[in-house]
Amino acid sequence: MTARTAADPSVLALDFDGVICDALEECALVSWLGMHPHDTSVPGPDQLAAVPEEFVTRFRRVRDYSRLLDHFVVAHLPQASAIVSQADFDRLFASLDPATVRTFTQAATAARDHFRTEEADFWLELHTIYPGMDALLRRFNGSAVVVTAKDADSVRAILARHGLGDTVAEVFGETGAKAEAVQDVSARWGVPVERITFIDDNLTNAVRVAATGARSRWAQWGYQTPEHRAEAERLALTPLHLDEVAALVPAAPAAA
């Protein structure tokens, strides 16, 4: 058995896409349909096959810099192919009309809802659990929360598909306010924030949560860039590799 230490967390707070689950194809598909008509008479696999490879390539680049579903709209801009920094991405996103972003997000969410409810098997097959993350959630059963830009219903459905539905106590869905979510858990659960370990593959999220006093770990198996790796090293932000997940164990219960 792995020995527990003073650094062992009482609560685990995790991002979803890029940490627990790999869903790049699903995100690319709903993002495409965020700006193109969704003919619901066409089955999901055919919809996915019709997404242009050029768009998927741009989406892969955009995904590395995104924190919210709203941000995926940038993949529709031809200029996205030239993004080489977070500043480039932020500039492109800021150049968009907020009404355009809202329309995109509503349409992408509607497409996701359709696939999740009307073509559930297809939709669920687009989500795979990263190796070791199922065992991690089971170790922290009841002491884990998910804090994600994805909607809570989708997260719950995917976890249930993989037999993990009861492992997560709460899902903070459709949120970019991850530091606030961690502080909320600390206050309501009565757990000191330094006893919460937060894991996210997005550097901005990891840095913001670190400022709360939580132990923030930057996941190395999700979406990131060389620029982010250099910035994380400068900030001395602790990376977490997938093969290190097995060493994370919950803190021992307090003595009576």
Rank of each mutant, 00 (worst) to 15 (best):
V209E: 02
A211N: 12
V168S: 00
E180S: 13
G190K: 04
A206E: 09
S186Y: 11
D166I: 03
V185N: 03
G165Y: 03
A169S: 05
G165L: 00
V155F: 00
Q183M: 15
H162G: 02
R161K: 11
G213A: 10
A181Y: 06
A177R: 15
E194C: 12
A179R: 13
L164N: 00
I196T: 09
I199Q: 04
D201G: 06
R188Y: 11
N205D: 13
K178A: 10
G165I: 03
P192Q: 03
G176K: 09
V191H: 04
F172Y: 14
L164A: 03
H162Y: 06
A157Q: 04
I196S: 09
R156Q: 03
V185Q: 08
E180A: 15
S186Q: 08
T212W: 10
H162S: 01
G173C: 02
E174N: 14
V171N: 01
G213D: 11
A206H: 04
V191F: 03
V182A: 10
A210I: 08
V207F: 13
E170D: 14
A210P: 10
D166L: 02
V171H: 01
A187V: 12
P192F: 04
D200P: 08
D200K: 03
G165P: 02
G165S: 02
A169F: 06
A211K: 15
N202D: 14
T167G: 02
P192I: 06
E194I: 11
A211T: 11
V191W: 02
V209P: 03
G173L: 05
G213Q: 12
A206L: 12
A206P: 08
A169C: 04
N205I: 06
F172L: 09
I158C: 01
A181D: 05
T167Q: 05
K178V: 10
S186H: 02
D166P: 03
A206M: 04
V209R: 08
R161W: 07
V185K: 04
D184C: 11
G213E: 05
N205R: 07
G213T: 10
A210R: 15
D201H: 05
Q183T: 13
D184M: 13
P192V: 05
H162V: 04
P192Y: 07
A152H: 11
A181K: 02
E170M: 10
N202Y: 13
K178C: 07
